[in-house]
Simulated scan of single mutants.
Amino acid sequence: MTARRSRRSAVYAALALGLAGSLALTGCNSHSSKSKKSSSSSSKTKKRRIIGGGAAAAGAGAGAASRRVTDCRPSSYKVTFSQQTGPQSHVTVKFKNTTSSACRVYNAPLLRFNNAKDPLPLFQGKPSELAGTRNTVPANGYVYAVIPTNTAATKGTEQKSVTVDFMGLSASSRTYGPAVVDFAEKRLHISVGKSKVTDWFTSVHGAEVAAGVGK
Rank of each mutant, 00 (worst) to 15 (best):
I51A: 14
G54T: 01
G54F: 00
G54P: 01
A55S: 06
A55C: 07
A58M: 05
G59H: 09
G59R: 10
A60H: 08
A60L: 14
A62H: 01
G63L: 14
G63S: 14
A64Y: 12
A65H: 07
A65E: 13
A65G: 03
A65V: 12
S66M: 03
S66E: 12
S66W: 03
R67E: 14
R67G: 10
R67C: 08
R68K: 13
R68C: 00
V69H: 01
V69T: 12
T70G: 11
D71G: 06
C72D: 01
C72R: 05
P74S: 09
P74D: 02
S75W: 01
S75L: 06
S76I: 04
S76T: 09
Y77C: 04
Y77P: 04
K78Y: 09
K78P: 00
K78Q: 11
T80Y: 01
T80L: 05
T80Q: 11
F81W: 06
F81V: 00
S82I: 04
Q83A: 15
Q83H: 13
Q84C: 04
T85A: 12
G86W: 06
P87M: 09
Q88V: 05
S89E: 08
S89R: 11
H90N: 13
V91N: 00
V91C: 02
V91G: 04
V91Q: 00
V91K: 01
T92V: 15
T92P: 06
T92N: 12
V93F: 08
V93A: 12
V93Y: 07
K96M: 07
N97C: 05
N97S: 10
S100A: 15
S100N: 15
S100K: 10
S100E: 12
S101I: 10
S101E: 13
V105Q: 01
V105C: 06
A108V: 08
P109V: 09
R112F: 07
N114D: 15
N115H: 04
N115T: 09
A116D: 12
K117A: 14
D118M: 10
D118T: 11
L120R: 02
L122W: 10
F123M: 13
F123C: 03
Q124F: 06
Q124A: 15
G125L: 05
G125P: 00
G125T: 04
P127Y: 08
P127C: 02
S128G: 11
L130Q: 11
A131E: 12
T133E: 10
R134H: 09
R134K: 13
R134V: 10
R134E: 13
N135E: 15
V137M: 02
V137E: 02
